[in-house]
Write a protein that binds this DNA or RNA. Structure first.
Lengths: 238, 238
DNA sequence: TCGCCGTTTTGAACATGTTCAGAATCTAGC
DNA sequence: GCTAGATTCTGAACATGTTCAAAACGGCGA
């Protein structure tokens, strides 16, 4: 399917229309009929390209995720064309993490009205739109890659943490998103504060993890993370 | 409304019918029409008692929450009638916490098929069925009370942690539930393991928090928890 | 140009969540 | 016992997500 150029155009028109309506009017008021009508096609045609409304939400999810990744790459100076780098990219974990988490708040901001549904839809396990499902592995991988880069470029992360820390930070991102959805403070100030203080705490804990006394608990935490991480990959096999 | 005894009976019949159907057939196949039909009343009548399908899911949420609280109370020996206590209730945080978290996996088990929707519905901020919303404060408070009791009866929790630790453990419960929803291992073995190892990690961290070196990061974590905790109470004011 | 076949599009139809005007039933006061 | 008013219940109607049989379109070989 989607062979011809016209088909691709129709699909893209539907996609952008849906995203605009989601952004401006929220989830419920964005009717499949309305999306189709505003795109100038029939209702059935929308379903030809997007099998369900959830799939349109999934497009939104991917868009926002991509925006976040782009924003972080820019600010970490990871973009290939580093022509203009007004300030050098930070190398401390705390700074890099704060930057990544706060960037997510910024990237998500235009879609705060649909945030709820975004999360609600994203959380459904069966749905192929869930970030935990096997079929959306690319999106999930991309999301985790952000934090892999955060850790990779930090000079103050001990070697034995480098492999699993990104996963842990990704869970933090999940929690931050959950908080953000419920955050009604102006400018999402509380979410930004949570991101900032969260980064500080993580950095301190990582620093502490170097000490011999912390060795035991560190190992335990890593084991726990690995246990949790194998969930999605193993659970969805059916 | 719901003045007469017959009305109360109808309401209860609808409630139990819905819960049974949710448990046996899942969310989607439990139609409002079907609930009404199997309860022997008209569709409209179901809406007289439960304004939306989400409200029926909310009943399920409350039921499961109550089951969890009851189970934990039994095993911690907190029940008023402590006539038969085969073994003394544990006083170590690790044991109490493991018990509480693992009990949640047990209590949720019958409803694993609807787990997804349970979480999905529970997470919606606007909805009065959300555990974060002001209107379901009782359920949320009850849920947190479980962990307040876990901490209260533990002999190995330093004083400066006692106030905020329950909140933190409640977040852990949230995470565990999220994991459980996606857990397809037989007997939910992975979730039980996560609960067990999680309890171990928490206990070790708490032990570590006594040391002077950990003072700084401990304070930061507590600040973070308080920041996160004020979310629900403040955000829902509108 | 014509006809074939895969691709794209249509609009009616269906099931479900939800609303609502009114019918049925019950209770209280006489 | 009887009526007025509140409570409880009904079933049709509506909007929306989704499906599907069939129409329209488009390119390609004869």
């Amino acid at each position: 399917m989607f062979k011809t150029a016209k088909a691709e155009a129709t699909r893209e028109l539907l996609r952008s229309t849906a995203l605009r309506l989601f952004r401006d009017d929220g989830y419920e008021r964005t009717t499949m009929r309305r999306v189709a009508a505003e795109a100038g096609v029939s209702t059935g045609n929308a379903y030809y390209y997007f099998p369900s409304k959830d799939d349109l939400v999934h497009e939104l999810y991917r868009e926002v995720q991509a925006d976040h990744a782009r924003l972080v790459a820019e600010r970490l100076g990871t973009t290939p064309d580093a022509v203009d780098s007004p300030r050098p990219s930070p190398t401390r974990l705390e700074d890099r993490l704060r930057l990544a988490w706060q960037a997510s708040v910024e990237a998500f901001e235009p879609y705060h009205v649909v945030g709820t549904e975004l999360v609600s839809v994203a959380i459904r396990p069966g749905a192929r739109t869930s970030p935990f499902s096997a079929e959306s592995t690319p999106a999930r991988t991309a999301s985790r890659a952000v934090f892999a880069e955060v850790v990779a470029g930090a000079h103050d992360v001990p070697p034995h943490l480098r492999a699993d820390l990104p996963e842990l930070l990704w869970y933090g991102q999940l929690g931050l998103t959950l908080f953000w959805v419920h955050d009604t403070s102006p400018g999402r100030r509380r979410s930004l504060a949570l991101a900032s203080h969260g980064a500080q705490v993580v950095a301190r804990l990582v620093r502490l993890a170097r000490l011999p006394i912390a060795r035991g608990v560190t190992d335990d935490v890593l084991r726990l993370v690995r246990l949790a991480a194998s969930d999605a990959t193993e659970g969805s096999g059916s």
